[in-house]
Nucleic acid binder design. Structure first.
Length: 125
DNA sequence: CTTCTGACA
DNA sequence: TGTCAGTA
C-alpha cells in the first residue's frame, strides 16, 4: 500500500510516516515512480512506534528495541549487548521517574477535585 | 489526483 | 508537524 493508505489505517499523517522512515523507525520499498510502498505488517509496526513514542521513549531507544519486538508487546534479546543494556537501564530509570511524576500530579489533581467538587462525586480515576 | 523532496513558520 | 512549491 502507498503512504496515503498507511496513514489512514494508522492515524499518522503521511508527513509523520516519512519522518519515521527518515529516522529508521520504519522501512519502505520504492516503486519506479519513487512512491513509498508498505506492507500489511507496517500497520502494526507503526502502531508500536506510536505507542513507544507516546510513552516518551526517544527515537534513538526505539530504534534499539524495535527489532526486538516479536509481533506482540513482549521484548526479547537473544544476545544481550552490554552497551544496549546500559542504555535500556538508563531509559528504564527515566521512565520510572516520569511515572512517579505523573502519579504525583494525578493525585494532586484528584485531591483538588475532591475539595472543589466535594467527595460526593465519584467519576474519577 | 497522489506522492516526493526540501524548506519555512 | 503542517503546509507550500514544483514535479513525476
Amino acid at each position: 500500500m502507498r503512504i496515503g493508505e498507511l496513514a489512514e489505517r494508522t492515524g499518522a499523517s503521511p508527513r509523520l510516516l516519512r519522518y519515521y522512515e527518515q529516522h529508521g523507525l520504519i522501512t519502505a520499498e520504492r516503486s519506479p515512480n519513487g512512491y513509498r510502498h508498505f506492507g500489511e505488517d507496517d500497520v502494526a509496526r507503526v502502531g508500536r512506534v506510536r505507542d513507544l513514542l507516546e510513552a516518551g521513549i526517544p527515537i534513538k531507544i526505539i530504534k534499539l528495541i524495535l527489532p526486538c519486538l516479536s509481533g506482540g508487546e513482549d521484548i526479547h534479546f537473544p544476545v544481550p549487548d552490554p552497551g544496549l543494556l546500559a542504555q535500556l537501564e538508563e531509559q528504564r530509570d527515566r521512565m520510572t521517574r516520569k511515572a512517579e511524576c505523573v502519579l504525583k500530579n494525578r493525585d494532586a489533581i484528584a485531591a483538588y477535585l475532591d475539595r472543589v467538587r466535594g467527595p460526593a462525586e465519584p467519576a474519577r480515576d
